[in-house]
């Protein structure tokens, strides 16, 4: 992982990555630019999930409820509020997901471990049922189509219906958000979450209200997922019940596991690999979920640190510093 101390050797790949992403539309065919936009949207979703799973140690099967809420709020808002700007639609989604996060979090976080996990599953099913049954608003099984408005911001006018323009829009805004998440993990609040995961009793003795920390984090990740959902709706220009279904949770779970829960950028890598694999595999066979499932099993059994863990351990082995808990999240792990 990159550390905050400015080691030039570790900054370089970062610059190369950002430069590569910015230049991507210049050399990639349009289809791949489109695919990359999808990766960016899912990267945000996966990062938000990893904050919950990797950092706070909360296994949730209900992350899609926030993602779906975001997607539906964007779709409904754009359909019913003429002249609504892209930014406002996204903000509305984030607000709705935040609200959903506070309410469900207050109810869910009374429980821990598998009780928490199963309750999140139940809540997701509740959200799914609302989306299916509330036909007059959500369109039920038919879904809602979304008209992506153009961006008018501070005198800048951008035609977002253009694939490349939307790519840059997503890259810059989502990139900034992911950057903020990275920053968040280094704030006092971010550290608290990590320490609560490691030793909750001790944090309580130190005077922290661990329930509040958890609720804040849960709400924060919900808001991020809602934001990702909003981008998803804008990207596909359509919202359907699949955005809020359990499958959307398993998707993010797969991405996070493939990428690795142990590092901040692992889920981003997971989103990239998952999306590309999905794209290629579904070309070859209709049974691609089977292959995805096998990959998941192999990852969990043999590479619990995910791809990022694998990369770190290879790099450390090459550098001759093997054996340093590569799969453990964050360098900030305290004894």
């Amino acid at each position: 992982m990159r550390r905050r101390s400015g080691n030039p050797g570790s900054v370089f790949p970062g610059i190369a990555l950002v430069g590569g992403l910015l230049a991507a539309p210049l050399f990639l065919p349009l289809y791949h630019v489109n695919l990359l936009t999808e990766v960016i949207v899912f990267a945000l979703y996966a990062v938000s999930y990893n904050l919950l799973l990797g950092y706070a140690g909360l296994l949730s099967f209900g992350h899609a409820m926030f993602f779906g809420t975001g997607a539906y709020v964007t779709a409904v808002a754009l359909a019913h509020l003429p002249g609504l700007s892209v930014g406002s639609a996204i903000l509305l989604s984030v607000a709705a997901a935040t609200l959903a996060g506070v309410v469900t979090g207050a109810l869910l976080l009374r429980h821990k471990g598998s009780y928490f996990a199963l309750l999140t599953l139940a809540f997701n099913a509740l959200f799914y049922a609302v989306a299916t049954k509330w036909h007059s608003v959500t369109g039920g099984d038919d879904g809602l189509s979304v008209n992506r408005p153009n961006l008018d911001f501070l005198g800048v006018h951008l035609d977002l219906s253009d694939i490349t323009t939307f790519y840059y829009f997503a890259l810059i805004t989502v990139g900034a958000l992911i950057g903020y998440c990275w920053h968040f993990t280094h704030t006092a609040m971010g550290r608290t979450v990590l320490l609560v995961r490691e030793n909750e009793e001790r944090m309580k003795f130190l005077g922290y209200d661990t329930n509040i920390s958890r609720l804040l984090l849960f709400t924060f990740t919900g808001a991020l997922a809602g934001c990702a959902g909003s981008y998803y709706a804008l990207f596909f220009e359509f919202t359907s019940i699949s955005a809020i279904s359990i499958e959307m949770t398993t998707t993010v779970l797969l991405m996070t596991f493939i990428g690795g829960t142990g590092s901040f950028l692992g889920p981003v890598l997971g989103a990239l690999v998952y999306t590309l694999l999905h794209d290629k595999l579904s070309d070859i066979t209709d049974r691609w979920p089977l292959i995805m499932g096998l990959i998941f099993i192999v990852m969990v059994l043999y590479v619990p640190g995910g791809l990022s863990g694998l990369i770190v351990s290879i790099r450390e082995r090459l550098a001759g510093t093997a054996g340093k808990n590569a799969a453990q999240p964050l360098e900030g792990r305290k004894p």
Partner: peptide, 30 residues
């Protein structure tokens, strides 16, 4: 719908397919 549009977008952008048809799922149709 998202799976259908993703795959269709791919065909449009990569192979220039203009014509599509289908018969199952009104949400896919929309």
């Amino acid at each position: 719908p998202d799976v259908a549009t993703r795959k269709a977008t791919k065909l449009i952008l990569k192979e220039g397919v203009n014509f599509f048809c289908g018969g199952t799922g009104s949400s896919v149709g929309a």
